[in-house]
Amino acid sequence: MAEAARMQVSHEVAVQITKMNKWYGTFHVLRDIDLTVHRGERIVIAGPSGSGKSTLIRCINRLEEHQAGQIIVDGTELTGDLKNIDKVRSEVGMVFQHFNLFPHLTILENLTLAPMWVRKTPKREAEETAMYFLNKVKIPDQAQKYPGQLSGGQQQRVAIARSLCMKPRIMLFDEPTSALDPEMIKEVLDTMIELAEEGMTMLCVTHEMGFARQVANRVIFMDQGQIVEQNEPNEFFNNPQSDRTKLFLSQILGH
């Protein structure tokens, strides 16, 4: 199954990052990042905390601003132009570590809000789409509840469904399972695997190395704001080249 999905990678470029640099004040968080993501690719970004991996994917939908270099998402370059930023954001879905569902809205309203207000989809159509994706993440019966009434795993699946309702062409995952209890990680990963098998372009910051082995077609290892190593998963895990990568892998796979 995973092999079949891997074939779907096209030559079309989804995200093109060239010589991108970012500073927090004087602290150089991202240094000379070069990254090309093809449509249908599933990339897992790993690395120690503070290595800039979250910042990198947050630059792709401009939650963080980069100060030098170029980011082109789906043919649109990210600059200060607000129209371009909103365009990119509506094409790129994002799933956060802490879900960030809107607590004052029901699950259904969480899902229909952006399609109705950004895409101007009629309410009925937006609700049908929402129910379709809620079915897909296997919690259609929770539609009328509020986020606070759901478990962490359910909330994260709702968050994935919320992003999917905007019919994004690229999905970003920022440590989607890090805030979950161990017994809930699997249900979220299953949803993500299903999404990957449908050919969604995904960039995923995660520590779930099993997930990386199973669905990624490229693993990127970052440290100190730089891409240290990237390779296809088998090579990456079995035959790491850099010492930094070897150390990292021994630490996270050690027990």
Binding site: L63, S90, M94, F96, H98, L101, L113, A114, W117, R162
Partner: peptide, 20 residues
């Protein structure tokens, strides 16, 4: 995170303020 989620969904400033 609420502001970020609103941004990430493509809501502009006024819509994010008003709805979220």
């Amino acid at each position: 995170g609420q502001f970020e989620a609103a941004d990430a969904l493509g809501l502009d400033y006024w819509k994010a303020q008003r709805l979220i």
